[in-house]
Design a binder for these strands. Structure first.
Lengths: 339, 339
DNA sequence: TTTATTATCGCAATCGGTTGCATAATCATA
DNA sequence: TATGATTATGCAACCGATTGCGATAATAAA
């Protein structure tokens, strides 16, 4: 098996020192034009490529950023990665991706692995069950910047979040303004700040618009698959629960709710309106099309990567952590009555 | 800013040689129990983590595999990555991901970057417009194994493909057996072997089942977004084209077709049946639910990663390239008449 | 007491590059 | 011709770890 060609190989072949070869390849003016030409010619011939490992070790710089996220098979996250990848690529960085599978133990191992690979920085979205943060703080302490995205954490670091309170608020407001006043909310898992913010928005909109509200209107829906919300709504209907609008914590839950309503021959949006969250790709495909709150994942990824690069490039000087909250956008479609 | 702690730091602190520290940490019996204990204690205290870069350079082994694929925001590919990540993780490997954005120039740069990072192997799905393969061959020649997935390439290397011919054949056969005999096919981009195989299956099924076939029945649909296929079908209808079944090269195109039919008040599946390809997540959400050919992306990712690891681990001894073709599965749903 | 043996540990090369400094060669000038 | 300036190149340390081999000291055997 062939080995990759090294500086040393070129040097031996040309009978000069490796330092000369190195300088020649970088157009160092101290090297004579003749030597430079000879070196470059041979390098082309042998298809020489510098060993990034050696460079990284020498410069203590890998030009790599690590990404930790809960799941890859997730429309929103895949758009975030795509945004990250764009920015990283155009700045000459590579990305190493780890998926924690919503598991803190895995997340800890991943963060260690990234540190050991000496990534120049880390972008992280913590898993749902992450309840302590030592593993991240330890890495920060070693001087590696971390930017968190999508899910908030009680750490002194830069963050790119979505305005989940606003999203929940506007979703609820839209339902109310379109004439629905008896709303229920399929909420996300407890402890996940993001879903709690959406729920807060749901509650606050009731207050501000003078609509009565009670705790029973919040139905917890932790897993986030279609079947779960289907059963929850089916169950609610069987119990005789009355409502004319549903705010679901995400589009998946919204679809389950929609299917449960359709199975019970309840018309959407006439009898019950539905609004989801995230604008998954399918939301414009289903029938009726799904009104939803859009988060721009690509933007989030780009902003997060930009912020991280900024911190990486000014590694020495202390940088005040920034917290950016991205606005949400309501996408009006068929599952709500739009005046 | 703090620097990461190195072996040398430990050695200086304890006033012993770095080699001793190194051996102590690896439980080398040549080191006395006392010294070993002291070293380990300090390592814990200072939170020592070995520098993976240095190890990689020393051992010429990065425990990293590179992945090149056309797009991240794509349900099928995200499942593939997830499968790759699973296998890689459980074998102690990290993955570096590059998306080519269906662009060969970007693909070439990515492959070089991965080589320069001295990944132990590469998993690649070439972009649609890749028409030469020197960049991959050059890397193979340097002794780095490459396994291709999903899209076939004229290179002597291991491949994990999906049986696209079979998928196209079975899709078509299903339409015909459910009583539809005047079929059209929304085909994928020219030159992409995968879509040509599906088209071949479409044609062959006509032959085998004695259904007349003509070239006009194949409508090219290159981009793969909903709008494109919507327009194509709308256009076909306006021209008075007659058909009672559609085989779409993927679910996205199928959705566009479905919407065009619904807009024209043509009932699905009664008047026209539709079958898609890939079983995107939304396919079970839309109405009617979409019959489709399922490719197991997760399996493909796992198989590809396993095969690559196998080749990595037997790097020295020559390995005969394997070509694995994964079976497809037809998922019967609402857009076809199922007897 | 001398030699052999063993337990412990350090030296130095290595992986593939980079870079400060020294050195040799060439040239110009006094 | 000797000296200073300039040009082109090599030496060697370094990044952070590993590892073969040799060194040292302590212990055991003769």
């Amino acid at each position: 098996m062939k080995q990759a060609v090294t500086l040393k190989d070129l040097a031996r072949e040309l009978n000069i020192a490796t330092s000369t070869v190195s300088r020649a390849l970088k157009d160092n003016p101290e090297i004579s034009a003749v030597t430079r030409a000879r070196v470059k010619k041979l390098a082309k011939e042998l298809n020489y490529e510098p060993n990034a490992l050696a460079l990284s070790l020498r410069h203590s710089k890998t030009n790599t950023i690590g990404v930790i996220l809960p799941e890859l098979v997730h429309f929103f996250f895949s758009t975030v990665i795509s945004g990250i990848e764009d920015i990283a690529y155009s700045n000459g960085y590579n990305i190493i991706i780890c998926q924690s599978n919503e598991n803190i133990d895995r997340e800890i191992l991943d963060s260690k692995a990234l540190f050991n690979h000496r990534v120049d920085g880390i972008l992280a979205c913590v898993s749902k069950n992450t309840n302590h943060y030592d593993h991240f703080i330890a890495i920060q302490d070693k001087g590696i910047p971390i930017v968190f995205f999508d899910r908030d954490v009680p750490i002194d670091a830069s963050k790119i979040l979505s305005n989940d309170f606003e999203g929940g608020y506007n979703a609820t407001k839209h339902l109310i303004e379109s004439g629905k006043t008896n709303l229920i909310h399929l909420s996300g898992p407890e402890g996940l700040m993001l879903s709690e913010q959406r729920t807060r928005g749901f509650v606050q909109a009731h207050r501000d618009l003078g609509i009565p509200f009670s705790r029973e209107k919040i139905l917890r829906c932790g897993d986030g698959d279609v079947e779960e919300s289907f059963k929850i709504i089916q169950n609610a209907l069987q119990k005789g629960m009355k409502f004319d609008g549903i705010f679901a914590v995400n589009d998946i839950a919204a679809v389950g709710a929609l299917q449960a309503l359709q199975a019970a021959h309840i018309s959407v949006p006439q009898e019950v309106a539905i609004i989801g969250y995230s604008d998954w790709q399918f939301s414009s495909f289903i029938s009726p099309t799904l009104t939803t709150i859009k988060q721009n994942g690509n933007d989030m990824g780009k902003k997060a990567a930009e912020l991280l690069l900024e911190e990486i490039h000014s590694k020495d000087t202390f940088i005040e952590p920034k917290s950016i909250t991205l606005p949400t956008e309501i996408i009006l479609r068929g599952t709500t009555l739009n005046k």
